[in-house]
Design a protein around this nucleic acid. Sequence first.
DNA 1: CAACAAAATATTGTTGACAATATACTAAAA
DNA 2: TTTTAGTATATTGTCAACAATATTTTGTTG
Lengths: 249, 249
Amino acid sequence: MSRTKPVQPAPTTAHDTAIDVLREHSLTTLVQRELERQIISGQLEAGAKLNEAEIAGELRVSRGPVREAFRALDQSGLVRTEKNRGVFVRQVSLEEAYEIYEVRAALDGLIGRLAAERILPAQLQRLREIVKRMHAASRALDAQAYFPLNIEFHAILGEAAGNRALLQNYQRIVNELNLYRREVIARSTESIPASTKDHESIVNAVAKGDGALAGRLLFEHVLNGRERLHRVLQSGPAQRAKAAQKVAT
Amino acid sequence: MSRTKPVQPAPTTAHDTAIDVLREHSLTTLVQRELERQIISGQLEAGAKLNEAEIAGELRVSRGPVREAFRALDQSGLVRTEKNRGVFVRQVSLEEAYEIYEVRAALDGLIGRLAAERILPAQLQRLREIVKRMHAASRALDAQAYFPLNIEFHAILGEAAGNRALLQNYQRIVNELNLYRREVIARSTESIPASTKDHESIVNAVAKGDGALAGRLLFEHVLNGRERLHRVLQSGPAQRAKAAQKVAT
DNA sequence: CAACAAAATATTGTTGACAATATACTAAAA
DNA sequence: TTTTAGTATATTGTCAACAATATTTTGTTG
């Protein structure tokens, strides 16, 4: 917490911003964000039990704020609460993931539709550059380079849609899907070429201002991703390990 | 655990259920539900400040569970929190309502698409009956009878879609829209005939199993509703009061 | 009387303590 | 050895007190 370095003569902006952080955010918010980060990043893995006292101790706060953060995380679908037993990082089953994919498809479809109508030239330019880099990563079968591009691609589109309520719901859904750890497996290099083609078509539709087409393409893009996941999961443990290894490298 | 009541010879059902309620739900959950109910019903009106101590006193609990419930409600979009100032029933602006309508359209579109594929004969039968009653209410311009039918109609469709994740997100969105108090105004008798026609077309598409059509119709149905709202709001204070009165009666 | 300053009050933020429940452990019996 | 009952420990649920911050009231000054 104490960013105040006694050595430094001028406790200027650095100190002020630290104060501002505490002025704006309560301990509950800080705890919530930190746990969110740990869950999303996989640092806290699915199914893990969150011990109130332990977390409170690590973050140097009392159990109150931790419990409040738990309620928020529960509502946002990142953890599940069992009365008198504790809270656990949510495990998303295959069936749930399937359902969530459908919801994401609908929201992404809307994003495409709106983005095609409202996107700014600068944003379109960024999309084109990303697709270009995706092609390169695709040719090199470089998953490590591809996935951040994929995330950025959808982030730009979400932004371009210009609908805060939509973006908020979308983000929550995407977070939930990321809980489905096995999804990582699906992020094998196999799906990259097809996915890249999808992205290119989407950008073209958006560039044309064809909202209906862009919406449909994005809708199908998400469901295609779901099917790719399905196929990888059915390919058996051996291939799965292999696919996962490709990613891990 | 000890169900053995030395005094009572027959630990009756009423008592058992009360015990079960406390076994399953924490005070936080109870507070959350009660506040949800009051907000949705309008008993707590938009913008109202929620006083921790006051609510805790009314519900006979301490402030802890109330604060936890606040965090959950905040996350679900029903209240807004200002640090060191308190929590307030969320006020949804016209702009926000517009955005939320778009999200609802997308989700309702998905509901239509899925319901057309998965609906059960019994559910379809219920939909047909509702539409029949809607026609009656429409002819009589009976808003009081119409609106519950409308709610039930969409509830059945949501159920028929058979996607829990979807239904959950849908419900949250609808709750948020209900915070837009002025929406009530839009529920004037004027929109009933058009809305009824929409519903009839939707049922037909669902009955045919035409998911694409049902989805599109529901998507447009929601956006039509938004436009009807827009028109009523632009019709000026006089007409607005008149329209509201029609509903209130 | 208006505007400002300062005290008094009310409200939220945080903490630690206690109660209720679940889990882990130990020992006795089959 | 396995099972089970009972006990000890750990963890969650709830509460009340304290600290920090906002709001209101009061009083003073121009």
